[in-house]
Design a protein around this nucleic acid. Structure first.
Length: 261
DNA sequence: ATGTCCACATTTTGTGGA
C-alpha cells in the first residue's frame, strides 16, 4: 500500500510546522512538494529526515523549487523536464520509488491570458505532454503530481462565470490538460469523486489568500495527480485533505492524495 | 483595481511573484 500526495507548500521554511504536523498525521509514503522556495543548503533536511523521509529536490532561490519525500529509497532522479532544457526555473523532478515512478511538477502560473508567461506555460505543458507520451511506452505505474495551475473543467471552479476564460480556466489551458489525459492518463481525484456525486462537489485544492477565499470555500481544483493505466489499476482511494488549509500560517494550497495497493 | 502571504535586499519598508 502506497499513499502519494502532492502539495504546493508556498515556502517549505515558512510552512515547516504545518508540513511536519501533516506528515505525522497522514503518514504519506511519497510526498510531491512544489514551491519550496529555497535552495538545497536551506532545506530543512533534519526536521523532515527525522520523520523517516528520504529527500530529493531541485531548489531555487526565492522562487519555484520542487521536491520528493519518500520513506523508501529515491532512485533514478531526473532534475528537469525533458525538452525544456533551456529553462533554469526549478519546476520538475522525477524519480522511481519502489514500484512506482513519480514526478513533482510546478507548472508556470501564466500570470494572465495572453501574457508572455502564459505562452511559456502552454509551451511547458507541450513538453510535459511529450514526456508523458514517452513514459507511457515504459508500461509502468506512474503518477505525475503537481500544481498544474489549471482547473480542468467548470466543475473545478467555485464560480465558473466569474472565472470564464481567465487564467487557470482558459480554453487553451484546459485543452492542454485534456491532451495529456487523452494520451491515457487519469485524474485520480476525479476518478473516484466525479463532479456529479456528493463527494465530488466543491472539491478544491487552492483558495486565494487575497480574497480570503478559504472563509467562503471559494476555491479552484488546480493540483492534480495524473496517473498511468498501471497506476489506476492499483487505485484504492483518493481525496483532498483540507485540514492543513485550516491551520495557522497555512499554505494557499492543500494536499491532494491517492492510495495505491 | 483591490485583497494576503512569501523571500529578499536596498531592510525597519519596498519590490516582485503568486
Amino acid at each position: 500500500m502506497t499513499i502519494i500526495a502532492t502539495w504546493n507548500v508556498n515556502s517549505i521554511r515558512a510552512r515547516l510546522p504545518v508540513v511536519v504536523d501533516w506528515l505525522q498525521s497522514a503518514k504519506p509514503d511519497i510526498v510531491l512538494l512544489q514551491e519550496i522556495k529555497t535552495v538545497k543548503e536551506s532545506f530543512p533536511y533534519e526536521e523532515i529526515g527525522d520523520l523517516g523521509y528520504n529527500i530529493a529536490l531541485v531548489g531555487q532561490k526565492s522562487y519555484n523549487g520542487v521536491a520528493i519525500l519518500a520513506k523508501r529509497p529515491i532512485e533514478d532522479v531526473l532534475d528537469h523536464l525533458p525538452g525544456n532544457e533551456g529553462d533554469e526555473s526549478a519546476r520538475y523532478i522525477e524519480a522511481v520509488v519502489g514500484d512506482v515512478r513519480v514526478a513533482s511538477i510546478y507548472v508556470p502560473n501564466g500570470q494572465e491570458v495572453g501574457a508572455e508567461q502564459y505562452h511559456y506555460k502552454l509551451k511547458f505543458l507541450e513538453h510535459l505532454r511529450e514526456h508523458a507520451r514517452t513514459l507511457l511506452t515504459y508500461d509502468e505505474a506512474f503518477v505525475l503530481g503537481g500544481d498544474y495551475n489549471i482547473a480542468p473543467t467548470d466543475e473545478d471552479v467555485y464560480d465558473p462565470k466569474l472565472w470564464k476564460d481567465r487564467i487557470h480556466c482558459s480554453q487553451p489551458e484546459r485543452a492542454a490538460i485534456r491532451q495529456i489525459e487523452m494520451l491515457g492518463l487519469t485524474d485520480l481525484t476525479r476518478a473516484l469523486h466525479p463532479a456529479n456525486e456528493p463527494s465530488g462537489k466543491d472539491l478544491y485544492s487552492w483558495w486565494n489568500y487575497r480574497t480570503r477565499a478559504w472563509d467562503t470555500n471559494s476555491g479552484l481544483r488546480i493540483d492534480l495527480l495524473l496517473a498511468s493505466p498501471q497506476a489506476v489499476d492499483r487505485l484504492e482511494a483518493s481525496g483532498i485533505d483540507t485540514d492543513p488549509r485550516e491551520a495557522p500560517k497555512a499554505s494557499d494550497h492543500t494536499p491532494v492524495w491517492c492510495r495505491l495497493r
